[in-house]
Every structure is written in C-alpha cells, then in structure tokens.
Design a protein around this nucleic acid. Structure first.
Length: 737
RNA sequence: GCGCGGUUAGCUCAGUUGGUAGAGCAUCCCCUUGACGUGGGGAGGGCCAGGGGUUCGAGUCCCUUACCGCGCACCA
C-alpha cells in the first residue's frame, strides 16, 4: 500500500499536481477524448469580468459546471467546456479610473484615450492571469486551448460583423431618443443597468394658471409649456386639447398649451401635470405622441442651462431650493408635502442619480419587423417576418430553450413584455468601438450628399466611399452585453462556418446566476436568434447567490467576504466545491459558513481512509470469483444508488445527487458494508472472503467514479494508487447497471 | 400597483405523481488499541407559519391571512 495512505488526506500536497496531470492528459479538449463519441455536449463558461478576483459566486458556478461537464464526459459524450473572460467595459474602466484618481490624482482625460486604454489593458491582463489561476485551483476541466476574451481580435471581428448585419437589417439604428444619462459616469446606460432606490422627498404643488400641478422636481419645470390631463376628467372638461393660455411661471409669463392624454392618472395629485420631455421618459412619450417641442433644461453635468435664467449654472440640489423659495415669494407655491416616497433611478456602477436626456445614440430595435433569413427556432419559419421580441419569446415558449427552475420563464416573458429599444452606445473608452465612421468633409469641396451617411464597416474604414476623403470613427463604445451576447457562437469561430460551430452549437447548457437573466441570457437569445437562426443553448440552469451565514450578500463594506482561495488552501478545493453544492437547490440562495466547508473536508478524509482499509484487506482480490448471494444483493443495491444519482444530475438537482453520494459512501459503504466486512474477512469461508474482497474493490471504484464529478481531486489521487487503473479517472465510464 | 419565491428539528436545508416527517451541523449519553477521534453507536428535539377547503388520507392540491426576501412597473 502506498505510504501516503498512512497519513490523513492532505489536499494541499496533491491538488496542483493532479490538475497538471489532467492538463497534460489533454482530455479537457474534446478532440483528444478517446473512443467514438457521436453525441456532443458543450457549455461556455460565463466569462468572469476582468475586474479583479473571483468570489464565491464564481466558485459555485465553476463547481456546478464542472460537475456537469465531468459527468457528461464520463458518460461518453464529446464534451467541451469553453473558458474565457469578459472585458466588462464600464465596470473595468471605472475601476481603473478610480484607482488612477486615488494614486495619481488624475482622471482619464488627463491621460488621454490612448494612454488610459493602455493602463486599463494592463490591469485587465493582470486580472485575467489571477482569474485563470483561480479557475485552475477550483479544478475546472475547461479546454484552455479554446480560451477566448470578449475583447480579443476574433471577438472584435464577430462584434463588428454582428453590428453590420443588424444595421443592414434595420435592427440597429441611430436616433435622438430619451436615454438614461449617468452624470457621474458621463455615459448612457441601458434600462437594465438602473437600480431603483426608494427615497423620501418633498412634493410640491404649484399654481400653473388656473391649475395646480404637483412635482418632486421643480428644477426641471422651466421648459414646461404643456399642461396635461386625462381626456375624461370632468373637472377639466372646460379646457380643450390645444387650448392656449398665458400663465405666470418661475421666470415670468409663458404660453401654456393644454394636452389631453390618457396616460394621466386622474387620482394622482390634482390630475394635472406639466411635462418636461427632455428629462422624463414618460413625458418624452407624451411629447412624441402629440408632436410637442422639447427643450433641454439640465446639462450633462447636472447643472442648470441658460433657460433657467437666474438659476443657470447651479447644481440641481441648489437650484431646487432656490426655485421653491422664489415660487413661494411669487405666491405660486400652494403647498409642500413631506414624506413623499418614490423610487429614484440610480446608475448601478456609479450610484449617481440618472438624469434622462435626449441624445443621439445607437439602438437595437426590438419591436421592428424584419425578415429572418434562416431559423431553426420552432414557430419561426426561415424567411418569415418577425421581430427580435418574437424571437426571444418563441425561443423559450416553444421549448427550444428550457429554463430551470421554470418559474424564471414567467419572469423572462414579463421582462420581454416591458422591453424597450436597447441603447447600445456608451460614452466610455474601454470596449468595442462602434464600427461606424463618418466622412470628415475635407476641404476642397469634393464631398457629396451621400457623405452624410454613416459608414458601417467590419474592418477599419480608411476613407469615405463616396468622396474618398478622410473619415473618423464614432468615439463611442458598445455596451459590454453586446459582445457577451455573442458569446456562445463568437467563441466557436462565428462568423466563419467552423467545425466547432457545427459540432457544439447550440450549446447544451448555460449555467449562470439568476441575477443576469436579463442582462445576458436574454441578450444571447436575441443575438443567436437573429445571427445564427437558432437558440444559443438548449437549457438554462440558474443558480442562486452565495450569501454569508446570516443570509446577507457578501460585500466589501460588510466585511463578510469569504475568499474561495483561502478556503481552498485551508480545506481543499473538493471540500469547497461540495459545500457550495449540497443545500443549494436550483435558483435558491445558499448560506455558506466556514463550518460547512470543514465538514466536507472530513468527508474527503473519510474516503481516503476507506481506501486505506480496502487496500489493506483486498490485496489478492479478483473479479474471477462469484459473489455470494448477500454480496450480489449489495452490488445490486449499489447500482440502484448510481441510477438515483444519475437521474438527479440529469435534472440538475446536483444538491440531491451530491448528498446521495455522500450518504452512500459514508453511511452505507463505510458504516455498514465495511464494518460487516471486518467479521466476514476474519471468520468467513474462503468463498465468502473472496466474494467480499471483490465487492469491496468494486464498490470503492464505483464510489470514486460516482464522487469524481463532485470531488475530482481526492478521487483522482486515490484512483492513481489503485491496482489495475491505467487511465485517468476523469475518462472512466460512468457507473450504471 | 402587478408578479414570483420562502415560512419543516436549535441552525442550514431536503421532502420528486397526496399514503406513518428526513439529512448535515449543533446538543447530550455511551463505545472504541487495527481504515478513519476528521471515528462508531444511540438519544432528545417538529400542531411542517396561522385559518379554511378538497380527500378515506394533506408538509404536499385549492382558497385566504401574516411575516420575510426578490423581480418588474411607476404617479408627474
């Protein structure tokens, strides 16, 4: 017996070596897997952001995916798990920007675009290396030879191709529309990047001619030339749509126009409001419906514009109070309510209050009809007319993509119903630059009217195709989710028609946190539907969030972060993996404590000691002896356990499967089978002893196979010390009846 | 406001089509010089959130209430 079994199991001494062995074995790459594997199984790793280090959420994701991947590989499928990282545009840029501000007191404009981007890329590279190391420590069996990055050259080609195809189909357009402006980050953000925060504030009622209007934002009211009420509101039936009246307002008299619109809630406030189309999405829609003028009141930095007269140049908070004071002085303030509770929109990254603005931006049209050239999505014929919303809906309600747990399907539909056009341009520097160039109208007058059109180009454009003059590229970059939306196929070689794409797309499974269902999952379905004509994955498994033992989110400010690498160095990756799996039903949050991890460290050691016993007692074991009746029954029973585990993994109930393996090995195999073996080996007939030795050897091997996806390191290490094991455990066939 | 989860042992959670309530950890007692103290055996501990209904039978199905958590929308 190898000497190492005389000491307790020490993960620190074996894990790195085992991972190296796996990598050298080459089986992470499906092209190297032995045997004929007609069925393929593929998943892409949700690329971690290159913003630093991995947290327990990542560790949980890696554990879940690795279990499934190892399981499918052992079952004989051509299995690919494709790794990569995400440049995470805005998140990474703001992280580096903050760091530079702190250490050097400079902002990105002080450095300039080129220098700043270099700094971000250096940071991203460092971060990438850290992440890759952490992925290895978790034991993830990803195919490093296919590693991708959302911002590398191949993905850039994919992004630009996607942009051009969508533009040509009319699904990407440039327009002046109301967008979410983050005054702190100085960029637009999408609807999904908004976090609503409940806030108590004051609510003011002002006299507006014959009306009383309510508002929580007096500072936007300068441009309010329209007064809106419900068409059926009998209180105001004397006023007709289009009526004009002179009213005294903040900075003197203005001409107001009456607008009737059913969007008004008769029961809210006085049932009358004035609108500020430039700084409110709802108001903007009213203005669009009635073709009203729109005026900007607040600038990009959150300061009042000249339209505010004496208040011009003030910050919002300052202006608000002074305006109210002036209105009171003019006798136009009717009353003030305290404790007005409403949700204010803030930017997810910077925390700044969003200021809606009308700006020229790039959008993806989700309701626009187009002809889909090719479609495998059930219910959408190739060549038929459809919309991106329809593609997203049909992909799921046809069953082509199933979401586990299924309650998230309803949440997904609900999101689609409320979806508006997706603003994809960002005014940040780090990311995929919008692949659009504009003619710069050089001196000499050779420009043509066509030169006003944007030039969409997959490769860098060097000249204007109309006048051959100089061009310059759009300064904006794309929302990071635009490139990650392509992830399932851009990683497989798209837009080229590669063998990988044919073999591995649609992927079998996407496993990710429920918190990015809309950000990412939905965008992938959209992109894949239009660009590939198919769903990106057949199944979506949504895992929960990892919380601390009190159920709180782990965060720096609470100081309750558990670092997965710390835990791995203390208890081993196997223990960390199991602690993140058992007790975590799909879609449910998991409360994790160090104590739980310690418990599974003990389990790894238990398996180690079972091995010691078996090795000590079965040296001359052979499969060439018959089982006794009792041993045959136990063998039979074990097969039943294998099937139960298999069934649960197939249903993505890894929590139950892992627990079953744990129960079987510890409480059935060790506590009972092994205990009774002591007597049998001592006092049994030669036939009974031979049968029992065969049973112990077989059960140990099967147990290791069964446990391997969950605890790959300790099982592989033990396997390598067993007699008659030439192959790596990771490619042994999965046990079944 | 609309919607979705959750509420089961001290704690963390299972409980698959309705058929005598389970696991881990914790607690207590006992055992063990040969696989393992990172052990073994055992015990205590549950009106399955409250109420109503369907059923021969409900933790499980239906209605309802309360509390906790979350998503979406948004009222100027």
């Amino acid at each position: 017996m190898p000497e190492k079994f005389l000491k307790p199991y020490s993960p620190q001494d074996v894990e790195a070596g085992i991972y190296k062995k796996w990598e050298e074995g080459g089986y992470f790459n499906p092209d190297n897997l032995p045997g004929d594997r007609p069925e393929s199984f593929s998943i892409v790793l949700p690329p971690p952001n290159v913003t630093g280090t991995l947290h327990l959420g990542h560790a949980a994701m890696l554990a879940v995916e690795d279990i499934i991947v190892r399981f499918e590989r052992m079952r004989g499928k051509k299995t690919l798990w494709l790794p990569g990282t995400d440049h995470a545009a805005i998140a990474t840029q703001s992280k580096v920007e903050k760091e530079i501000q702190k250490t050097e007191g400079k902002n990105r404009h002080d450095l300039g675009r080129e220098v700043f981007l270099k700094r971000v890329e250096e940071f991203a590279q460092e971060s990438h290396d850290t992440i890759v190391n952490q992925v290895r420590c978790m034991g993830a069996s990803v195919d490093w030879s296919r590693e991708a990055y959302t911002l590398d050259i191949k993905r850039r080609h994919a992004v630009n191709t996607a942009f051009k195809r969508m533009y040509d189909a009319g699904l990407i357009y440039q327009g002046e529309r109301i967008v979410n402006w983050d005054p702190k980050g100085q960029t637009t953000i999408s609807d999904d990047e908004i976090v609503y925060v409940e806030e108590k504030s004051k609510f003011y009622y002002f006299k507006y001619g014959p009306f009383t209007i309510g508002t929580s934002r007096p500072e936007t009211k300068f441009g309010d030339k329209y007064v809106v009420m419900h068409p059926d509101d009998t209180r105001y039936e004397l006023f007709k749509h289009g009526d004009q009246l002179e009213v005294e307002w903040i900075n003197g008299p203005i001409t107001a126009t009456v607008i009737k619109d059913a969007v008004i809630d008769k029961d809210f406030g006085t049932g009358v409001m004035t609108i500020t189309p430039w700084h409110s999405a709802v108001d903007w829609e009213i203005a669009q419906r009635h073709d009203l003028n729109k005026e900007q009141v607040i600038d990009k930095y959150g300061k009042m514009l000249p339209i505010a007269g004496e208040f011009a140049g003030m910050k919002i908070a300052e202006a608000r109070e002074k305006i109210v004071a002036k209105m009171a002085e003019k006798g136009l303030l009717v009353k003030v309510e305290d404790n007005y509770v409403h949700n204010i929109a803030t930017a997810e990254r910077t925390g700044a209050t969003i200021e809606p603005q009308i700006m020229k931006q790039w959008f993806v049209a989700v309701n626009k009809e187009f002809i889909i050239p090719h479609s495998n999505i059930p219910g959408i014929e190739s060549g038929s007319t459809t919309t991106l919303k329809e593609v997203m809906r049909r992909s799921v309600d046809s069953g082509a993509t199933k979401i586990v747990p299924d309650r998230f399907e309803r949440i997904y539909y609900h999101w689609i119903d409320n979806l508006r056009d997706w603003c994809i341009s960002r005014q940040i520097w780090f990311g995929h630059r919008v692949p659009v160039w504009y003619c710069t109208y050089p001196e000499g007058g050779k420009s043509t009217p066509m030169c006003a059109n944007p030039i969409i180009s997959i490769e860098n454009a060097s000249e204007c195709p109309y006048c051959h003059g100089t061009v310059e590229q759009d300064p904006d970059t794309l929302d990071t989710w635009f490139s990650s939306g392509l992830w399932t196929f851009s990683t497989l070689g798209w837009p080229d028609d590669t063998l990988d794409l044919k073999t591995f797309h649609p992927t079998a499974l996407l496993e990710t946190g429920y918190d990015i269902l809309f950000f990412w999952v939905a965008r992938m379905i959209l992109m894949s539907g239009f660009l590939v004509g198919d769903v990106p994955f057949k199944n979506v498994y949504l895992h929960g969030l990892v919380r601390d033992e009190k159920g709180r989110k782990m965060s720096k400010s609470l100081g309750n972060i558990i670092d997965p690498l710390d835990m791995i160095s203390k208890y081993g990756a196997d223990a960390v993996r199991l602690s993140l799996i058992i007790g975590a039903a799909p879609g449910n949050d998991l409360k994790l404590s160090e104590n739980r991890i310690r418990g599974y460290k003990n389990f790894a050691n238990k398996v180690w000691n079972i091995t010691r016993f078996v090795l000590e007692n079965t040296q001359d074991a052979t499969d060439d002896v018959p089982f006794t009746e009792g041993d045959a029954a136990i063998q039979q029973e074990a097969c039943g356990a294998f099937d139960a585990v298999t069934a649960n993994i197939e249903k993505y109930r890894l929590d139950l499967a892992a627990d079953q393996v744990y129960q079987f090995i510890w409480h059935r195999f060790a506590d009972e089978i092994l205990e009774e073996s002591k007597t049998i080996l001592k006092t049994g007939t030669p036939e009974e002893v031979a049968s029992r030795k065969r049973l112990l050897t077989n059960t140990l091997k099967d147990s290791l196979k069964l446990l391997h996806p969950f605890m790959p390191f300790v099982t592989e290490e033990i396997w390598s010390s067993l007699p008659n094991t030439e192959n790596l455990l990771m490619i042994e066939p999965w046990p079944s009846k």
